[in-house]
Design a binder for these strands. Structure first.
Lengths: 209, 209
DNA sequence: TGACAAGGGGTTGCATACAATCCATGAATA
DNA sequence: TATTCATGGATTGTATGCAACCCCTTGTCA
């Protein structure tokens, strides 16, 4: 396990909340290494979009303003919509099965109320899908957008109905991919993300009250 | 000018081609600093998607396989399409004017055959637009996709007609934004990117001969 | 002649020391 | 009392030394 992965886990795991300072010596001592690999890790996480570094002032976990979050979900709908569409052509039946497995596991953990597992598996579901639909290179450059939802602790603001919707979307997406239907897959993925946005950010069109 | 920016310029400027090794000592000597800041820079550029680092084997400039390039342009059409759409609402008249200025400058340099300037200004046009349409945070996480085109030395494979199209697209996009017409702006942006993809990668549907 | 193993040069990974910068605290003065 | 400036601690930025690793070369043996 590399130091980058360790620090990323600390952030995504919630040990450090958005806005928290990430001191180099503090992290180095916590992980039992010197400052050098920690600095490496922070630099990389900055470009991954998880960390915000100001010269001579150190690193903090990024905070997304509300407007950015609106845009992020709009973007994810487009990007992951494309990924879902392409995955119908590129994924093997085994890939589709694996995706279905994850979707089912999410449902089970959700029913049991195990939120940590749901976070983790949800990120895994989305990352795998993007990887299937495009490539590892692209998946990496998009991962920060997917992480943004995790940073938000998405599901804490989901009510029961929203959670049920989300869980079912995952399974439906896996089904669409197994069926090889690109339009269906893309449409469900878009619905999935817009539904999450609504639960997270509340009703839109606050402008024309 | 930071070391990261220096190294990025070396890559985007073409001093290092895709696949080239990026030795730490070599870069450090060239830039007159020690290995430490160079290492920082390479780690960051890795997550920006510009370099590829393998443990104990060093860094190389990334190479995108053809299939990835197809996907990259498809993605950019969706992402920058959204950016163009949103920019119509968010950009001030000054922003639109500035964009127009850049578009005109691109035309002038293109007529004069100054490809280096065209590369640079083109990247600036797209980056500014994304920044206008979303936010600095998002623009950064998308920049690697825009860079991929620069890495390709896009315009070297453009014929005269394709170049004219590209140049006019930029101006038209600025016009659509100034007119505040989101559909128009998004449509032109998509055309712009699909046209570039066609020039770069040749005709599609090679599968059904 | 071919294959495999040992050695050596070179490169990266990590740790530590020092320099530069920032920020907060407190004292001195208007 | 409020403001400014200086000073100190704390934190980041950079340099350098050493250890670990990879790969190429070379030599030996079948």
């Amino acid at each position: 396990m590399s130091v980058v992965d360790d620090v990323r886990s600390l952030i995504l795991g919630g040990q450090y909340a958005p806005g928290d300072r990430l001191g180099e010596v503090e992290l180095a001592e916590a992980l039992g290494v010197s400052r050098t690999p920690v600095r490496d890790a922070l630099r990389r996480l900055q470009s991954e979009g998880l960390v915000d570094i100001t010269a001579n002032k150190g690193a903090r976990v990024v905070e997304y303003p509300r407007q950015d979050l609106e845009t992020i979900f709009e973007l994810r709908a487009r990007i992951e919509g494309l990924a879902a569409r392409q995955a119908t052509a590129l994924a093997t039946p085994q890939d589709a099965d694996a995706l279905h497995e994850v979707a089912v596991a999410i449902r089970e953990h959700a029913e049991r109320g195990d939120q940590d597992a749901v976070y983790r598996l949800n990120a895994e579901f989305h990352q795998s899908l993007v990887r299937l639909g495009s490539s590892a290179v692209l998946a990496q450059s998009i991962s920060s957008l997917i992480h943004s939802a995790v940073l938000l602790r998405t599901y804490s603001s989901f009510d029961e109905e929203a959670m049920r919707r989300s869980v079912n979307h995952h399974i439906e997406i896996a089904a669409a991919i197994r069926a090889g239907d690109p339009e269906w897959a893309e449409a469900v993925m878009r619905a999935h993300l817009f539904s999450a946005r609504a639960s997270l950010l509340g009703p839109r069109r606050q402008e024309n009250e």
